[in-house]
Amino acid sequence: MTPADLSSTVARAVRRAVEDGELPAGTGVPERIVVERTRPGGVGDYATPIAFQVARAAGRPPAEVARVIADGLAAEPGLDRVEITGAGFLNFTLAPRSAAELVREVLSRGPRYGYADDALDPDPFCWGPTAGFRQRAVHEAVVRILRSQGSSHGTSQGSSQGSADGGPPPPVAPVARRDGDVVAAYGRDAATWAALAVPARETPHFDARLLVQDESGEFFLVRYAHSRAKALGRAATRLGFHAEPGPVDAPALLRLLAEYPLVLEAAAHRRAPEQLVRFLVRVADELLDFQHCVLPKGDEKPSAAHRARLALAEAAGTVLAGGLALLGIDAPDCL
Rank of each mutant, 00 (worst) to 15 (best):
Q291K: 13
V263N: 05
A284Y: 00
K297F: 03
V277S: 04
K297T: 10
D299G: 09
A250W: 00
P296K: 07
P296G: 05
A267P: 13
P261D: 08
H292D: 11
L256I: 09
A266D: 14
P296E: 04
P273D: 11
P251F: 08
P296V: 03
R278C: 02
L288T: 02
A252Q: 13
E259S: 14
A258I: 04
A250T: 05
A252V: 13
D289Q: 07
R278H: 10
A250N: 05
Y260F: 14
A252L: 13
A268C: 12
L287S: 00
L288R: 03
L256S: 08
P251L: 09
P273W: 10
R282G: 01
A266Q: 14
L280E: 02
L276V: 12
P296S: 07
L262H: 15
A267W: 07
V277C: 07
V281K: 11
A258G: 09
L280F: 01
Q291S: 14
A266Y: 06
L256T: 04
F290T: 06
A266N: 10
Q291D: 13
A258R: 14
L253F: 04
P273Y: 07
V263C: 06
F290Y: 11
F290C: 06
L276N: 08
V281F: 02
E274D: 14
E265W: 11
L264M: 05
R255V: 00
K297E: 06
A284N: 01
A272W: 10
Q291F: 03
L262I: 01
F290G: 08
L262S: 15
H292A: 14
R271E: 15
G298S: 11
L254T: 03
F290E: 09
R270F: 15
K297Y: 09
D285N: 10
Q275M: 14
D289S: 10
A272T: 13
L288N: 02
A266E: 15
L287F: 01
E274K: 03
D289R: 14
V283M: 01
V281C: 11
D285P: 00
A272F: 10
L280H: 02
R270C: 12
V294Q: 02
L276I: 09
R255G: 13
L257W: 04
L287K: 00
E274T: 06
D299Y: 05
A268W: 12
H269V: 08
G298V: 07
F290W: 06
D285S: 04
L287T: 00
P296M: 02
A268S: 15
E274Y: 15
G298P: 12
R282A: 03
R255L: 04
A272I: 13
L262Y: 13
P296H: 08
V283D: 00
P261N: 09
D285H: 08
P261A: 06
A258H: 11
G298T: 10
R270E: 15
H269P: 04
A284I: 01
D299S: 13
